[in-house]
């Protein structure tokens, strides 16, 4: 680990001032950033601890929630309004990492955690375009069992590892940002990027921009929502595939629906095609299958992850069936 300066920020304005400096990084719980610093993948000159910034979980008029970026993952998952109104979010968080890590991890840090691709992690011995643009990608011909099936590029096939973010993508969340140029809001689904030719750029954030909060709009039907994560062991493993979904049903028809997939792409994957096909259509096994089929139509397998295409389809259908069963 390279030596660094440590600073604590107590309000957003001073955080942005310090965080905007060259070589500065914000520090949440440190469960990802500090790991990456130990591996010499991240080498910040200064860390601006933003865990002391104000902002808890606030009720918004109309039923939404505003969640401060420094809120710990555990606190968010345990919050009564989250459990009642957005169960998929509580479940997604609880499906991730371990109790100890969730106690440390913050909402801001979870959103900006980086991929777990083992070639990305191997600074000493492997090539990675995300670490060193242009040097090549060793994951393509190597171990890519847990890599992307949607939206990858020849430069990068890594996936975004977060569970929480899959739920936030499904819930139409909005991210509140603050930078030197002032404040702005960004749709959660527009925050993370697909790799394209710039795999080293994970998100649409400007340098030094701080996440101050995440807002979840009211979505009454999300009270019937869920998150299902498929993984190689019962706990403490990243998703091979995950599905966050909410289903709004009226008279045997799908009135509205939200679906996002995890573990499949460089960003939490909002399943817009599947949603569009389902919305206004019948509540049936055939329509679920057709929706899953459509969403994964563009999926592409690497040498080791072909099974994920089928797995994603099956999991998506099962989640929809589950939710419709719950409603019926």
């Amino acid at each position: 680990m390279t030596p660094f300066r440590y600073m604590r920020a107590t309000d957003a304005a001073s955080a942005v001032l310090k965080g905007g400096a060259a070589g500065a990084r914000y520090l949440g719980g440190g469960t990802n950033l500090v790991d990456l610093m130990r591996e010499n993948i991240e080498t910040p000159e200064s860390l601006v601890d933003v865990t002391g910034l104000p902002g808890g979980i606030d009720e918004l008029p109309g039923g939404g929630l505003r969640i401060g970026a420094a809120v710990r993952n555990t606190a968010l998952a345990e919050h009564r309004a989250v459990r009642l109104r957005y169960p998929m979010l509580a479940r997604a968080i609880l499906a991730g990492a371990s109790g100890q890590i969730r106690n440390m991890a913050t909402v801001g840090g979870n959103i900006l955690q980086r991929t777990r691709c083992s070639y990305f992690y191997d600074e000493a011995g492997s090539r990675c375009n995300k670490r060193h643009p242009g040097e090549g990608c060793d994951a393509v011909g190597g171990f890519n069992r847990n890599h992307a099936i949607l939206g990858a590029s020849s430069a990068c096939v890594a996936v975004h590892p977060s569970d929480m973010c899959v739920a936030l993508a499904a819930l139409d969340a909005v991210v509140h940002l603050r930078g030197n140029g002032g404040e702005r809001r960004l749709a959660f689904t527009a925050l993370h990027r697909l790799p394209g030719e710039l795999p080293d750029v994970d998100t649409m954030l400007q340098p030094g921009e701080l996440i101050t909060a995440v807002e979840i709009p009211p979505m009454p039907f999300a009270a019937r929502s869920t998150y299902r994560k498929v993984r190689d062991r019962s706990s403490y493993a990243f998703a091979l595939v995950s599905v966050a979904a909410a289903l709004d049903v009226e008279g045997g028809q799908v009135r509205d629906v939200r679906i996002a997939l995890g573990g499949v792409a460089h960003k939490p994957w909002r399943a817009e095609r599947a949603e569009a096909l389902l919305r206004g259509g019948p509540l049936s096994a055939t329509s679920f299958a057709a929706a899953a089929e459509a969403e994964l139509a563009s999926a592409q397998a690497l040498s080791g992850n072909g099974f994920k295409i089928d797995l994603a389809r099956r999991t998506l259908v099962a989640v929809l069936e589950d939710l419709s069963g719950e409603i019926a």
Partner: peptide, 18 residues
Amino acid sequence: GRVMNPSLSEYHVPVHMD
């Protein structure tokens, strides 16, 4: 000839729930 998952996060051993 390199081991690519040299960590307890990526090299899986059973957790309690397994």
